[in-house]
């Protein structure tokens, strides 16, 4: 039984650098990443050259933004673990030449192509998204979402949730410690009962906390939506970079038709 503790989140360890990438507004960074992500994902299997082109773009951002490579690699290693599990399923299938056979398991050229394509797609997507979250703080990302016309109510709920994750995990940890100190978690069957009750209790406390938060918000003049903060100014370089990203994404796609 392992219970994990997330400290106060501080994911954007590289957000304070002064580079060209950081001088772009958060919404530009988000849009560029999303454009490139979409382009990577919709590329048909086996178009290696396209991903090569996109990899150059990602490498450029990686170098320009001066992010901490060690952290990036650590995060990628963990996030790629799950991808690896599903990836195995893509390998064994019919079609193409049979390269290796053992009983019912067959490795064919089609299987290898799909395995390679999907691996590359997920790897590039993960690197891109990690660069984004390493260099952009969550409040900045949320603000970018409002600017990009995501419903403000949904963004407000996201912000409120993000704020309370740590509080609730701490609350559960204290309940868990109380149960452990009373030897309530020694038996496997008891564990389920005690943990289930603890989750129920956590919900009751959560709901009551929600009511208290609401009253505190009203006391501070809340009227249905949080006040809009000062928006970062869009400069010429934002427009230029966005256009370049779009052209680059298209260039990667048409490279196979030239």
């Amino acid at each position: 039984m392992v219970l994990l503790h997330i400290g106060a989140f501080h994911l954007d360890i590289d957000s304070q650098h002064q580079t060209f990438w950081h001088s772009l507004t958060p919404q530009t960074r988000l849009l560029c990443a999303m454009l490139l992500l979409l382009a990577i994902v919709v590329t048909p299997n086996g178009h290696w050259l396209t991903w090569g082109v996109y990899a150059i773009a990602i490498l450029a951002v990686l170098l320009v933004s001066k992010i901490t490579l060690v952290v990036l690699i650590q995060r990628l290693a963990v996030e790629f673990g799950f991808v690896g599990v599903i990836l195995l399923g893509t390998l064994f299938r019919e079609g193409g030449e049979v390269l290796w056979e053992w009983g019912v398991l067959k490795v064919t050229t089609t299987g290898l192509t799909i395995l390679g394509s999907v691996t590359l797609k997920s790897l590039l997507s993960l690197i891109l998204l990690n660069i984004l979250t390493l260099t952009t703080s969550i409040p900045a990302l949320l603000q970018a979402l409002v600017i990009l016309k995501m419903p403000p109510l949904l963004v407000a709920i996201l912000a409120s949730m993000y704020r309370y994750i740590d509080v609730l995990i701490a609350e559960f940890n204290s309940m868990y410690r109380a149960a452990v100190s009373r030897n309530l978690l020694n038996h496997r069957r008891w564990q389920r009962l005690v943990l289930g009750n603890a989750i129920g209790s956590l919900f009751i406390r959560t709901y009551e906390r929600g009511e208290r938060v609401h009253q505190a918000m009203l006391a501070r003049g809340y009227q249905g939506l949080p006040p809009i903060q000062k928006l970062p100014t869009v400069r010429q370089r934002d427009v230029v970079i966005l256009t370049l990203t779009l052209l680059f994404a298209l260039f990667g796609q048409i490279i196979y038709f030239i």
Binding site: L3, L153, A159, M161, Y164, L168, L225
Partner: peptide
């Protein structure tokens, strides 16, 4: 006007509950 506070904490609750093994 309770939407933001209640939905926010309840989402955080589900997130926390999902972490319990």
């Amino acid at each position: 006007d309770r939407t933001v506070s209640l939905m926010g904490v309840c989402a955080a609750f589900i997130f926390a509950a999902q972490m319990i093994n």
